[in-house]
């Protein structure tokens, strides 16, 4: 393992060798045994790890209780997704009232086909652009992507 590879792995997985990919652990261990430079880099990485793992104090019992009560007090009775799905009368009303509904109804299969085609093209284009953001601009694109397709 070269020093460059060692540094890259250290930057990616941190200084806990048990979290490194199996294939690299043994050669990293060997490098640490023979290279003082590697040991120094590893010690620096351990210090950064300890900062990144600082355990912040949790919520006090009172605060946790208040927060939990507040969440439970604000729960809607039914999930929105189900509520929408279980309104057959309203759905029937909507389908019979819109202007031009009677004209458009025969074209429904065409609308569905167009919509499906559009969605398939959208998914293909999205898949083609989603992996490995290499730049800050690509990351901004990811945020946009999640906002649109995240679903939750």
């Amino acid at each position: 393992m070269t020093p460059e590879e060692f540094t890259a792995l250290l930057d990616t997985y941190g200084a806990d060798l048990t979290r490194w990919p199996h294939a690299h652990r043994r050669s990293a261990q060997r490098l640490l045994e023979v290279s003082e430079w590697a040991r120094n880099a590893f010690a620096d990485a351990q210090m950064l790890d300890s900062v990144l793992r600082i355990r912040e104090p949790g919520l006090s019992d009172a605060r946790r209780r208040r927060l939990t009560d507040s969440i439970l007090d604000n729960l809607p009775d039914e999930p929105a997704t189900r509520r929408v799905a279980r309104e057959p009368e309203a759905a029937a009303r909507r389908s019979d009232t819109g202007f031009g509904a009677a004209i458009l109804r025969p074209l429904t299969p065409l609308w569905v086909a167009c919509l499906s085609f559009g969605m398939i093209v959208g998914v293909i284009l999205t898949l083609g652009h989603s992996p490995a953001p290499a730049t800050e601009a690509a990351e901004a694109g990811w945020v946009e992507h999640l906002a649109v397709y995240g679903g939750l």
């Binding site: 930057d11 990616t12 997985y13 950064l48 992996p131 490995a132 953001p133 290499a134 397709y149």
Partner: peptide, 15 residues
């Protein structure tokens, strides 16, 4: 919702 190599790249550059 990313590929593994994308996350590895984020971890590396972030660190």
């Amino acid at each position: 919702g990313l590929r593994l190599n994308a996350v590895e790249s984020l971890l590396k550059r972030g660190r």
